[in-house]
């Protein structure tokens, strides 16, 4: 296969990855890394480097609209970034010491977890009107947003910032190790542990993903793991697909898509696991 054909195929696959990723609320990274490694037999480190670039593109694009719509808790996001970026830095370092097989198995585990989390997002942290969390009060991490469905102002208090920080460190590390946004880890950390409402949690997660990915992408770039031939079509394709996906989101019945995606995730997880053992 010539490089041009390969680029066009990657562009198409990335477009679908971005589209379905944004429809079900998972990033394109969970699709890109398995496609590159399992189908094209590309070194998992180069796959992760290319994927992390696409994560920056999609999350920045989406974050811009969420911030404009005032859904994002800027203060809480910027505060938690201390943990996600240090986690990402640790993770990016660990990759050079960890065996490839470990990365495949970890990917399979995180995929399985993300799939389950995506399908069972039913229980949420209760809305708090008071908080005795000293960090949240001191840095004033509390927030509010206007719910588009009811047009009501939802004000909330943030709790358990320390637990949030610890979970964000782990999320940052997983993001760097696997080249994914790891929103599936960030959202429950804010929603369940810190009592940030789910809509604000996902907007704030998106906001942090770009910076987290940039922290590990710096290491990958300096190491020569970001191959421009891979990264270019993937960044363009995933971003274009995600843009279409976010427009379609309101019009589609997401249950069917979720089920389809879940089946795909399961297949990919098994494939990655087999490559790991």
């Amino acid at each position: 296969m010539s490089p041009l054909e390969f680029t066009l195929i990657l562009l198409a696959i990335s477009w679908f990855a971005g589209l379905f990723g944004s429809l079900v609320g998972l990033g394109g990274g969970v699709v890109i890394v398995p496609v590159l490694t399992v189908i094209f037999h590309i070194d998992i480190r180069l796959a992760i480097g290319a994927s992390i670039i696409s994560v920056i593109a999609t999350s920045s694009g989406a974050a811009a609209s969420y911030v404009k719509d005032r859904m994002t808790n800027l203060r809480a996001g910027m505060f938690l970034e201390i943990a996600t970026t240090t986690g990402a830095l640790s993770g990016a370092f660990l990759t050079s010491y960890l065996p490839e097989k470990f990365l495949f198995i970890l990917f399979a585990v995180v995929l399985t977890y993300s799939g389950i989390a995506m399908y069972t997002q039913k229980h949420h942290g209760a809305l708090l009107t008071v908080s005795n969390d000293r960090i949240a009060n001191s840095f004033n991490l509390h927030g509010s947003y206007v719910d588009k469905a009811t047009n009501e102002l939802v004000e909330y208090k943030v709790a358990r910032t320390r637990v949030g920080l610890a979970l964000m460190y782990v999320a940052g590390m997983v993001s760097a190790l696997l080249g994914i946004g790891s929103g599936a880890l960030k959202v429950p950390a804010m929603d369940l542990a810190m009592h940030i409402p789910i809509k604000a949690s996902s907007a704030t997660s998106n906001f942090m993903i770009g910076v987290t990915a940039a922290a590990s992408a710096g290491v990958y770039f300096a190491r020569g793991d970001i191959d421009p031939v891979l990264a270019a079509p993937i960044a363009i394709g995933v971003l274009a697909g995600a843009l279409v996906g976010s427009r379609l989101l309101a019009k589609l019945n997401s249950e069917t898509i979720k089920l389809l995606f879940l089946a795909a995730l399961a297949a990919v997880a098994i494939e990655m696991f087999i490559k790991g053992v």
């Binding site: 670039i53 920056i56 920045s60 770009g210 910076v211 990915a213 940039a214 770039f221 990264a231």
Partner: peptide
């Protein structure tokens, strides 16, 4: 790719 990488840092 570097401009993309610098975008979240710029914010």
């Amino acid at each position: 790719l570097i401009v993309l990488l610098l975008t979240p840092i710029a914010r």
